[in-house]
Simulated scan of single mutants.
Amino acid sequence: MRFFLTIFSILFISCSPEKSEMNTDLKSVIKNFSKEICIDESCATVNFTWPEFEKSEIGDRLNQAIQEQLQAYFYLDSVGRTTLEEQADSYLESFRETKTDFPDMPGGWAIEVEAAISFDSLNTLTVFFTEYNYSGGAHPNSSNYFMNFDRSTGEFLSIDRLILNQDKMKEIAEMAFREFHEVDPEKSLEADGRFFLPETGFFLPNAMGFKDGKFHLIYIPYEIGSYAMGYTELEFSLEELQGVVRM
Score class of each variant (00 low, 15 high):
residue 143 S to E: 08
residue 52 E to F: 02
residue 17 P to I: 08
residue 162 L to E: 02
residue 181 H to D: 05
residue 35 K to N: 11
residue 220 I to R: 12
residue 163 I to W: 01
residue 6 T to Y: 05
residue 18 E to P: 00
residue 19 K to C: 09
residue 207 A to L: 07
residue 187 K to L: 02
residue 218 I to P: 02
residue 152 S to A: 12
residue 96 R to V: 08
residue 93 E to W: 05
residue 127 V to A: 08
residue 241 L to F: 00
residue 78 S to N: 13
residue 131 E to Y: 01
residue 41 E to H: 11
residue 86 E to A: 15
residue 140 P to S: 10
residue 152 S to I: 02
residue 22 M to L: 10
residue 179 E to S: 04
residue 241 L to T: 03
residue 56 S to C: 03
residue 14 S to F: 11
residue 160 D to L: 09
residue 198 P to A: 15
residue 133 N to F: 01
residue 24 T to S: 12
residue 208 M to R: 06
residue 49 T to N: 09
residue 192 D to V: 03
residue 144 N to C: 09
residue 112 E to H: 10
residue 75 Y to P: 02
residue 123 N to F: 03
residue 218 I to L: 06
residue 120 D to N: 14
residue 224 I to A: 14
residue 178 R to A: 00
residue 116 A to M: 07
residue 238 L to V: 05
residue 221 P to E: 11
residue 243 G to W: 00
residue 168 K to A: 13
residue 35 K to T: 07
residue 48 F to D: 07
residue 30 I to D: 09
residue 81 R to L: 14
residue 179 E to H: 04
residue 230 G to Q: 09
residue 82 T to W: 12
residue 184 D to L: 02
residue 214 K to A: 15
residue 124 T to L: 01
residue 182 E to V: 01
residue 2 R to I: 06
residue 197 L to Y: 04
residue 64 Q to S: 10
residue 119 F to S: 13
residue 182 E to Q: 07
residue 246 R to T: 01
residue 3 F to M: 14
residue 15 C to A: 15
residue 14 S to M: 12
residue 137 G to K: 07
residue 245 V to P: 01
residue 25 D to K: 08
residue 186 E to T: 14
residue 224 I to F: 08
residue 158 S to R: 10
residue 95 F to V: 14
residue 169 M to N: 06
residue 232 T to V: 08
residue 136 G to V: 02
residue 199 E to T: 10
residue 31 K to P: 00
residue 7 I to Y: 03
residue 54 E to K: 08
residue 191 A to R: 03
residue 151 R to Y: 00
residue 50 W to P: 01
residue 36 E to H: 07
residue 215 F to D: 04
residue 4 F to L: 13
residue 211 K to I: 05
residue 31 K to T: 02
residue 31 K to R: 12
residue 116 A to F: 04
residue 101 D to S: 13
residue 175 M to Q: 13
residue 247 M to F: 03
residue 135 S to A: 03
residue 79 V to F: 03
residue 18 E to R: 11
residue 172 I to Y: 10
residue 149 F to G: 04
residue 35 K to Y: 00
residue 47 N to T: 04
residue 182 E to G: 00
residue 43 C to Q: 12
residue 247 M to W: 00
residue 183 V to N: 09
residue 160 D to N: 15
residue 207 A to D: 08
residue 145 Y to S: 11
residue 102 F to Y: 09
residue 246 R to P: 00
residue 2 R to K: 04
residue 7 I to W: 04
residue 139 H to C: 06
residue 26 L to R: 12
residue 35 K to F: 00
residue 129 F to M: 08
residue 106 P to F: 00
residue 216 H to F: 10
residue 247 M to I: 03
residue 160 D to R: 13
residue 190 E to G: 04
residue 28 S to A: 11
residue 243 G to Y: 01
residue 237 S to T: 08
residue 36 E to T: 14
residue 205 P to A: 10
residue 240 E to I: 05
residue 162 L to I: 06
